[in-house]
Design a protein around this nucleic acid. Structure first.
Length: 489
RNA sequence: GGUCACGUGGCCGAGUGGCUAGGCAACGGUCUGCAAAACCGUGUACAGCGGUUCGAAUCCGCUCGUGACCUCCA
């Protein structure tokens, strides 16, 4: 029994987390559509649910974490509406669709690794589950909640709503949707504008298509998640996560599909992370105001004043609660970078502290308050605040102004590794300097000369060497009996 | 237009009836040949107006402002 409390979008309440089949937990999260580089927004759910995955495992649950790769089926809504996003890019670049998918999947994996996001247990692809999706469509047809027309199959929302409740998750009222759903081109086949495609017949220039009982075509937009979550987690399963923007229509349609197919809802707990904004506006592919993770890590973007380390980005995201929006700015990232550096440094010196008299810092109550923060709907901002309380105590001890008892110190070392490392997933930065780097040796040589000059009280020479190094981009930091240095960032 | 959120000190960001996080910046100090860095210390803020209450940033009402979803989106 654990004290973990999570916010359920379905009930709009925080709920005590209780697995359906302890000690097993099924977790499904909507993954990326791999037709382009992942952006800052993609990092949010990846990191949020990575934290949940880590914490559930720490709590000794046997978690199966499924995060899909969408490589088929999403429609685009610009000038050429109705065309598959992945196909469009393929034609543009004269590549096979699967080539695009492979490239961006690989890049997504690389970026996730940089962010220290653990791999999910299963990462299924939509294109690898066409047969299962067709079977899912058939089940819905058999139960009478879908209709076929001209080779396409649509979900009959109205009929479904008579028995179940369409709009339960998002709070939509079907009667309102009648008047508010936008009429899109090529949708006149549908009985109602809010009906959605389960299977779509491919037109002549559509490259990705598969044979089916209804037509040569491709699966509908929402089907893959219902299909793959059911296949790997069974039904019902514990937790389904994703971005808030997927709440409607994507997740609402998932609920309808699963309920129509099985007669009961598939998901017990829905979790949604909020958006990342840029200048107060949502960052998104369609808005064209997004910054990709690659650009963020290299600093190669007009809005970026510098490159940001992946750990800075992870820390930045964890400093806000996952259900709040977080606004991107250079200032915010830079303050995260500095704060993180301070945290890392304390973490670094902690194991080397000398035990002494028991100090004022109460490790036991601190530990408890850290867990309380995590248990309270993954309140990472509060947990990080706790870590900084420990940082102050550690620094004071480092300066000999406070101390920990030997047992408190041992416990604090392992708890810091647990909280900062294992759970928040922060990594200590690698030392960039390698031993056999020639430039490094030259810099070290100059600094040695400067040290000698200082010892002879030849401050003119010492200052000149420091100024020259500064000019070349090396920041010199004098220490008590030596020096430290780093490249300007 | 409909639905739903939100508005916290210079900036970011928790809290959600009394105990008033945290980070960055700023200021003060320690250290230092100087500087930088580092470290320590210092901050009663909760959009506005009413109401409920012994007591409200926290509950209720109204006003103003911002955003999200309603279309692919993390």
């Amino acid at each position: 029994m654990t004290n973990l409390i999570l916010y359920n979008t379905l009930t709009r309440k925080k709920e005590q987390f209780k697995p359906l089949n302890p000690p097993f937990v099924g977790l499904y999260v909507c993954g990326p559509t791999v037709y382009g580089d992942a952006h800052l927004g993609h990092a949010r759910p990846a990191i949020t649910f990575d934290l949940l995955f880590r914490y559930l495992q720490y709590l000794n649950y046997k978690v199966r974490y499924v995060r899909n790769i969408t490589d088929v089926g999403h429609l685009e809504n610009d000038a050429d509406s109705g065309e598959d996003k992945i196909v469009k890019k393929a034609k543009l670049e004269q590549l096979e669709p699967m080539e695009i998918v492979q490239r961006y999947t690989d890049r997504y994996h690389h970026h996730m690794e940089q962010l220290n996001v653990l791999k999910p247990s299963i990462e299924p692809r939509a294109s690898g589950h066409i047969i299962e999706q067709q079977q899912f469509v058939q089940r819905i047809l058999d139960r009478g909640y879908a209709y076929e027309i001209n080779g396409s199959v649509y979900f009959d929302v109205e009929k479904y709503h008579k028995q179940y409740h369409y709009g339960r998750l998002s709070g939509r009222v079907l009667e309102d949707l009648h008047t508010q759903t936008r009429a899109l081109e090529g949708q006149e086949e549908k009985r109602n504008p809010y009906d959605f495609a389960l299977w779509k017949k491919a037109d002549a220039n559509h490259l990705m298509h598969w044979p089916s009982p209804w037509s040569e075509g491709f699966p509908g937009w929402h089907l893959e998640c219902s299909t793959m979550s059911t296949k790997y987690l069974g039904t019902p399963f514990d937790i389904h996560g994703g971005g808030m923007d997927l709440l409607f229509p994507h997740h609402e349609c998932e609920i309808a599909q699963s309920t129509a197919a099985d007669g009961h809802e598939a998901v017990k707990l829905w979790m949604h992370n909020n958006m990342i904004t840029i200048n107060g506006q949502k960052m998104g592919k369609s808005l064209g105001n997004f910054i990709t993770l690659d650009e963020l890590f290299t600093g190669n973007h007009r809005l970026l004043q510098q490159a940001y380390n992946p750990m800075t980005v992870r820390f930045f995201i964890l400093q806000a609660h996952y259900r709040s929006t977080v606004d991107f700015s250079n200032e915010a990232l830079q303050s995260a970078e500095k704060g993180l550096a301070r945290l890392m440094k304390a973490w670094d010196i902690l194991p080397g502290l000398t035990p002494g008299e028991p100090g004022e810092f109460d490790v036991t109550s601190w530990k408890q308050r850290c867990f309380e923060a995590l248990d309270d709907d993954l309140n990472t901002p509060v947990m990080i605040a706790r870590l900084f309380e420990a940082v102050r105590a550690i620094n004071l001890a480092g300066e000999g102004k406070a101390s920990f008892s030997a047992s408190a110190l041992t416990e604090l070392v392992s708890l810091f590794d647990l909280f900062a490392g294992q759970l928040l997933g922060l990594q200590k930065p690698e030392k960039e300097r390698s031993q056999n780097d020639r430039t490094t040796e030259l810099i070290e040589m100059v600094l040695q000369l400067r040290l000698e000059a200082k010892r002879k009280n030849d401050y003119a020479t010492a200052d000149r060497l420091r100024d020259e190094l500064t000019r070349l981009g090396v920041t010199v930091k004098d220490k008590k009996d030596g020096y430290d240095w780093e490249w300007d960032s």
